[in-house]
């Protein structure tokens, strides 16, 4: 016993080193559990308020570009409104189809963002008090950005598409074949689309949109276009490279999507797995 203690005392630095490394490793490996511990992620009050201060400062330098973005979005909405008004004139029938209440949108600003890691996250300046909840989708002016996984009182954060731990259900707009889209950790402008079988006809430039199956995003939100595709011999699916429509290096204003019937859908789907 005594010699054991002596041994420990003699190499205490090495054992301390090992202990700290093991703690770090546990932190890394159990990452998904630790996401729920608010203290360790950037939606916590201290780091989020620092990020917001810095974002408040830098947002002034981006005002011009943001104005252009908003003007463009405004124009798109105007055209949509025009079309709806035309519809309205012709039909005095029930308008419940148009006033679909499944999805609700909440505007927010990105206060922290990265593109150079293997697991990139965005932090937003809206939180619980603004009606933000877990699993709300994040959509930018040019399409899908990410999903909310952590919410604190005034902030929320979650992975962007540029995160190897997150996948999104996507489909090819022209023929509705769907697969899962993920980032391979290299170029922030490109992602991969998987699970599209060989018999599907593809062309470079085909539009990729959300499938709506994940219930986080509404159907048909833009993600990107096909940049190139090929099939390896022996593989069952195409290798498809997608050029993302969102520029993650400059994005700043986004909207959060709330699915009002998310819980109902999940409960219903859980009954299937119980059988």
């Amino acid at each position: 016993m005594r010699s054991l203690l002596q041994f420990l005392a003699r190499f205490h630095v090495f054992f301390l080193f090992l202990a700290l490394e093991v703690i770090s490793l546990i932190l890394i490996v159990n990452y998904n559990n630790f996401q729920r511990v608010r203290f360790l992620n950037s939606s916590n009050q201290l780091s989020a308020s620092v990020y917001e201060m810095s974002s408040n400062l830098t947002s002034y330098f981006q005002l011009k570009r943001i104005n252009e973005e908003l003007a463009r979005e405004n124009a798109e909405l105007q055209t949509k409104l025009q079309k709806l008004q035309v519809l309205d004139i012709f039909s005095h029938a029930d308008t419940s189809v148009i006033s679909d209440t499944t999805y609700q949108f909440i505007p927010a600003r990105i206060i922290n963002n990265s593109v150079n890691k293997q697991h990139n996250y965005v932090t937003l300046n809206k939180g619980l008090l603004d009606g933000i909840e877990q699993d709300m989708g994040i959509i930018g002016p040019d399409g899908v950005v990410g999903v909310v996984t952590n919410v604190s009182k005034h902030y929320s954060s979650g992975p962007s598409i540029l995160n190897r731990r997150w996948r999104v259900s996507a489909k090819i707009k022209k023929n509705n074949y769907f697969g899962s889209l993920y980032w391979n950790g290299n170029d922030p402008q490109y992602a991969r689309l998987n699970e599209i079988p060989f018999h599907v006809e593809l062309a470079v430039g085909d539009t990729i949109v959300t499938s709506g199956y994940s219930s986080i995003f509404p159907e048909g939100i833009l993600i990107g276009v096909i940049d190139e595709f090929n099939h390896d011999s022996g593989a069952n699916f195409y290798q498809i490279n997608i050029r993302l429509s969102t520029n993650f290096k400059t994005i700043s204003h986004v909207e959060l999507v709330k699915n009002n019937f998310l819980e109902e859908q999940i409960n219903l789907e859980e009954q299937n797995t119980d059988d």
Binding site: F17, L20, S24, I28, Y121
Partner: peptide
Amino acid sequence: IDIFSNTPGIHASATTF
């Protein structure tokens, strides 16, 4: 650094090393 960059454990292990 981990807290600020959402990477629990990664920087901690490297800096301990």
